[in-house]
Amino acid sequence: MSEDLSAVDDAQLARWAYGRPGSAAEGERARLAAAELERRAAQRAGELATPPPSAGATVAPTPARAPADRGHPTAARAPEIDDVPPPDDEVPDPGARARARRRILVAAGVIAALVVAAGIAIPPLLDPAPPPRSSLDVFDREFSDEEREYLTLLQREGQRVNVGPRVIGTIEYGTVLAYRSIRNDPGQPERDQVCVAVAEYDRAAQSPQINDWQCVDRSDFETEGASVTLFGLGGQYDVDWGPRGRAQVEVIMTEAQRRVMDPGLESSFLDFPERELDRAYVDEQLLLEQTGLVVEQLRTVFPLGELLGDPTTEQPSTILPDAEWVAIYTGAPVDSDERVACLAVVAAGVQRESRCLSLVDNGGRGFLLEIEREGQTILVSWAATGEISAQGG
């Protein structure tokens, strides 16, 4: 005999219909409960579609609509709410709702259990952005060997360096440094300053130099940063270093400044000391009549006998006055501004062999001079970097 479930409420029916049966009897009751829920849902749907008239009321006949006048256009009428039947998916279904709610609750419970069991912390959807780092954090890292050398140079210039220096930018021939200087002079308020300086390699002095520096109060730096212009041998350095982020460095350089910083072939005249003999070639213009060139600078690099293996050339005091020398020089014709660089062999104010190259059109190239002596061939090179070398055989 079938169990009568017509008097059981919907919630209990849903628990029986969608619960897990433990026996055949409970399985049969679950089937009957599901059928009862479907019957009630169908009944409610029919009541919504055609509501029954109340007792004692009469139903008025629906007036017939007049046919449209096809001879005259009519305005389109928006359908009234009562004209549109409700879609099927909007009809309430207690059984469907109960099934969906149970699935959602079960899924949520399983996810929560997995998260708790694994000990997983669910992060927020959007992590807050980290605060921007201060530019002064550059002082937190360790010194490099190069920066220790710059510290010595700054102190040699009389700078009080309490923190730093640190390299904050390199461009062309300049290295921009940052350091902090804290002053506690008697009778004066303490000054905590952030400073920037430019270091360059001075070819004439054959060493790095600190050529300019500027400082701002730390309180001003932390709100506005530092925008300074530094002047060096290799140009004008514009430094824009804000309270946050890296320094921006630009340089304005003339061609004359570039030649000073990177003289190319002419750097040899800085690398080799000038002898008294070299000075005589320039002061007395010993080569002018023979070459037609006004010599600007000249260096006798090494005696040719040394390259040929002559042991008497090992001591400069033993070199004869008329000995042959490998020399380098620059000059220009009397009636022209076109400068040239020359490799030559000179002896007693006379040029024996030479090869010259235009300094304007050489494109940064070096060149060679080939010398024949005593059955030997000597190749002398003058590199674009200013290095002089020779080999023979």
Rank of each mutant, 00 (worst) to 15 (best):
L177C: 09
R44C: 01
P128E: 15
A17N: 08
V198H: 05
N162W: 13
E90Y: 06
L357H: 08
D69A: 13
A280G: 01
A226N: 06
T229Q: 07
D69L: 11
L37T: 00
R191N: 06
E224S: 15
S134F: 11
L37Y: 12
Q206Y: 04
F272P: 01
G119K: 08
L359N: 08
T330P: 04
L304F: 06
G46W: 07
Q214R: 15
D283G: 06
P132K: 12
V110Y: 11
A14N: 09
V167K: 11
Q193H: 04
P61M: 03
F367A: 07
Q12K: 14
L114P: 04
L277T: 11
G164C: 02
T170R: 15
V295L: 13
T291F: 05
G158L: 09
L5D: 07
G366C: 15
Q214W: 02
Y281E: 00
L13N: 07
A17Q: 10
P128R: 15
A226I: 14
R355K: 12
D145L: 11
D271F: 01
T50M: 07
P243T: 06
A42D: 15
S358T: 13
S317M: 04
G232Q: 03
S207A: 15
A280R: 05
V346N: 00
R183D: 03
L379Y: 09
A204W: 07
R299F: 02
E255A: 13
G225N: 05
E190S: 12
V251Y: 06
V161G: 03
W213E: 02
A7R: 14
R70P: 00
F221Q: 06
I252P: 00
A11D: 14
P273H: 10
M261C: 08
A178S: 15
W325P: 01
V251P: 02
V251K: 08
A341Y: 02
V334D: 13
A14G: 14
V115H: 01
V59A: 08
R15N: 06
R180P: 02
V346P: 00
L154T: 02
F269S: 02
C215H: 09
T223P: 00
G56R: 09
Q206N: 13
V334K: 03
L153N: 01
D137V: 10
E47K: 13
L233K: 13
T223Y: 02
G71L: 14
T377E: 05
D4H: 09
E200Q: 15
E296M: 05
G386L: 01
D220M: 10
A33T: 10
G366L: 11
A384V: 12
V216H: 11
L177R: 11
G169S: 14
D283P: 00
I168N: 05
R373N: 14
G187I: 03
V334Q: 15
R40T: 08
E222T: 13
